[in-house]
Simulated assay, not measured.
Amino acid sequence: MPIRNEPWPEGTPTWVDLGSDDVEAAKAFYTGLFGWEYLSGGEEAGGYVLAQLDGKAVAGLGSKQDPQMPTVWTTYLAADDVDATTIKVGDAGGQIIAPPFDVMDSGRMAIASDTAGAAFGIWQAGTHIGAERYNEHGALCWNELHTRDYDAAREFYPAVFGVEFHDISGEGFVYSTFKRASDGQEVGGIHHDGQMPEGMPNYWLAWFAADDVDAGIAKAVELGATVLMPPMDSPFGRMSVIQGPQGEAFGLITLPTEQA
Rank of each mutant, 00 (worst) to 15 (best):
P99C: 10
P99H: 13
P100E: 06
F101K: 03
D102Y: 11
V103L: 13
V103E: 04
V103D: 01
M104Y: 10
M104P: 00
D105L: 00
S106T: 12
S106G: 12
S106Y: 12
G107C: 02
G107L: 01
M109H: 11
M109T: 13
A110Q: 05
A110E: 07
A110L: 09
S113L: 08
S113A: 15
S113P: 09
D114L: 07
T115I: 05
G117L: 11
A118H: 06
A118E: 09
F120A: 14
G121Q: 01
G121K: 00
G121T: 02
G121V: 08
I122T: 03
I122D: 09
I122F: 13
Q124W: 08
A125W: 01
A125H: 00
A125F: 01
G126P: 01
G126M: 09
T127Y: 00
H128F: 15
I129W: 02
I129F: 04
G130S: 03
E132Q: 15
R133I: 10
R133E: 02
Y134I: 06
N135W: 15
E136Y: 05
H137S: 14
G138L: 02
G138S: 09
A139K: 05
L140Q: 08
L140D: 00
L140V: 10
C141L: 05
C141D: 01
C141E: 07
W142M: 08
W142K: 07
N143T: 12
E144R: 08
E144I: 07
E144H: 06
L145C: 03
L145H: 11
H146N: 15
T147D: 08
T147W: 02
R148D: 01
R148T: 09
D149K: 13
Y150I: 05
D151K: 14
A152V: 00
A152T: 03
A152M: 04
A153S: 15
R154C: 15
R154T: 09
E155S: 14
E155F: 05
F156E: 12
F156V: 02
F156G: 02
F156I: 04
P158M: 01
P158F: 00
P158L: 06
P158Y: 01
A159H: 07
A159Q: 14
F161K: 01
F161I: 11
G162K: 03
V163H: 01
E164F: 06
E164N: 11
E164V: 02
F165Y: 15
F165H: 15
H166I: 15
H166E: 15
D167L: 11
D167N: 15
D167C: 10
D167Y: 12
I168M: 15
I168N: 13
I168R: 13
I168W: 08
S169H: 12
G170I: 04
G170V: 07
G172Y: 04
F173R: 00
F173H: 14
F173P: 02
V174N: 11
